[in-house]
Design a binder for these strands. Structure first.
Lengths: 200, 200
DNA sequence: GTGACACTAACGAACGTTAGTTAGGCTTGA
DNA sequence: TCAAGCCTAACTAACGTTCGTTAGTGTCAC
């Protein structure tokens, strides 16, 4: 059902990975320590040998997943080449990081729902701030007249929103594509077309 | 905007409204029957005079909120006038229905996270199918060459995604706007500009 | 080598709390 | 009078967590 976690990882890491998957599916309150323990193959009491309490385990799971995601996006942003190609690579990486890693996407979505401002600020400082700044810089370089940060915000919103709605699109209209590579192509083309015109 | 404003709401309706608000903030598992009862001003046991169990109360809350939201959007879509004005009105209504009704937006988001396909299908059939079809028709009328349904899907994704991310935008970049009327204006302009050019 | 010791990570049992839910009785407007 | 709607009290199940214990492992003086 869920992804198989390699068993030669330390128990501590396996616990975090399993917890991330469960939290992403059912949320913090919807997962019990016994659920996590059972999925790992140990008893609930043993979890406390690795994490102080449920909340510490939750944050460890978040950190594991989000740092992986941030690294993915930043790698793509470090790529060299023509600006047009770098934009395509960035959009593609962003789509991939969202659609290709449902655990991360769902955890992020739940965090946006449940988190408070303090937690957002830590999340931004730790993992999302740098990739966003790089995106903004690239978009500003490509369209010096426009507002790179605002465009980046729209881009992230659209990609994330589309991946969230993807499950119900077939019910809304069977012709809607759920192929996210099409989404990436459309977005890159749209952005490039937009940048070749003057825009407020 | 103004649905039924009765002189005295029935306890049953008040329970559903209060429950909707709490569920939207903390999710199904994060809200107890005692929480809801306390917010209404009665005891938990009394809730069972109105709803069979917690799940029935949850679905009643969903129905109350989503039917209100769907009516809002459909009202705007029924407006007459020049196509350009109708598009502006539609985008504005969609933004308003999302940003101006956080309870509905958050409940929808949680439903997209937690719901299964069966629940999506019921949700689409009951409340989201008709407004979406109207949007598609309007967009197709405005740009006969394009794919109205796909554009509608992008539009909904972007609006919803933006409202979801809104709380962390100030932390990402202080210049980002959280004024949703600006979002509505930008989107309407972008769509109209796009439709005046041939587009795949 | 070997016994003593400390450390790790697992266990079953139990703690106090809170969950959803039910039963039965009191109050009150029609 | 009577049903509707509220209450208190209680139930069982599940929750997060702590406890004492144990098996296995590495360390080191002797």
């Amino acid at each position: 059902m869920s992804t198989v976690i390699a068993s030669d990882f330390s128990t501590r890491d396996r616990v975090a990975a399993v917890a991330a998957s469960l939290f992403s599916e059912r949320g913090f309150a919807g997962v019990s320590m016994r659920d996590i323990a059972e999925a790992v193959g140990i008893k609930a009491a043993s979890l406390y040998n690795h994490y102080a309490d449920k909340e510490a385990l939750y944050f460890a799971a978040l950190a594991q997943v989000f740092s992986r995601r941030a690294a993915l996006v930043e790698d793509a942003l470090r790529a060299t080449g023509a600006p047009r190609e770098r934009l395509k690579a960035m959009v593609s990486a962003l789509v991939q990081a969202t659609a290709g890693d449902p655990v991360a996407a769902r955890l992020l979505q739940r965090e946006l729902l449940d988190g408070d401002i303090k937690r957002f600020e830590r999340l931004v400082a730790d993992v999302f701030g740098r990739p966003f700044a790089h995106m903004t810089a690239l978009l500003t370089e490509l369209a010096p007249g426009g507002d790179g940060a605002q465009t980046a915000a729209y881009l992230i919103s659209l990609i994330h929103g589309y991946c969230v709605f993807a499950p119900i699109f077939p019910a809304l209209d069977p012709t809607l594509t759920t192929d996210t590579s099409v989404l990436a192509d459309n977005l890159a083309e749209e952005l490039l077309g937009r940048m070749e015109r003057p825009h407020p």
